[in-house]
Amino acid sequence: MRNMLIAAALLAAGAAQAAPADVDRLAWMAGSWMQEKGAVVTRETWIAPLGGTMAGITQTNRPGRKPQVEFTTITDEPAGVTFTARVDNQPPTPFVLKPGGEGEAVFENLAHDFPQRVIYRRCGEDLCARIEGTVSGSLKGQDWRYVRAK
């Protein structure tokens, strides 16, 4: 009987490890990415999921200005998979993942002023990102197309 309990426990542990956490399904975002648009350079790096968490950092450099740095996490939360942005002197802002297809992630927080959505998707070998929301009744957005950084 004891051996059967141990075997059952090992099978249950193996099944739990085999079922990927929701955050693990976003592993396609992992890596170091870069976009050069004119003189503006944006770098974004995502650490591969581990323990239901991904960590990211984005740095944007514009000539004559101090670099802007944003720290982000994607975590399994009671509300669902949550992208949380931490930007210069602002409180952390959470966006919850909406249901969607493979290779795309749409995070939403309709209570936030701008953006209200943070979107990532694979564009072939590239990583495409977009922030968008409604401002004065009109949809506004900003897009990035990142290539893998060398």
Rank of each mutant, 00 (worst) to 15 (best):
G14E: 05
P49Q: 00
E70I: 05
P99H: 11
R145A: 12
L10D: 06
A149Q: 13
A129E: 05
P20E: 04
W46S: 07
I131T: 07
A149F: 07
Q17F: 09
Q68K: 12
P92E: 09
F71S: 14
C123N: 15
R2S: 15
G31W: 00
L50Q: 15
Y146S: 06
F83N: 09
A15T: 11
N89T: 14
Q17I: 13
I57F: 01
Q116F: 06
S138R: 15
I6R: 01
V87T: 03
A55H: 11
P94E: 01
V23Q: 03
G100Y: 08
A7Y: 07
G64Q: 00
G64N: 04
Q90R: 12
T73L: 07
L10R: 01
H112M: 05
M1S: 14
R62F: 04
M4F: 15
C128W: 05
E132A: 00
Y146W: 08
G80I: 01
L110W: 12
K140D: 14
R62M: 11
A39I: 00
T53W: 09
L11Y: 07
A21E: 12
L50F: 14
G103S: 11
A85Y: 03
E77A: 01
P20L: 00
Q90P: 10
T53Y: 13
P99C: 07
F107M: 09
G38A: 03
A111Y: 02
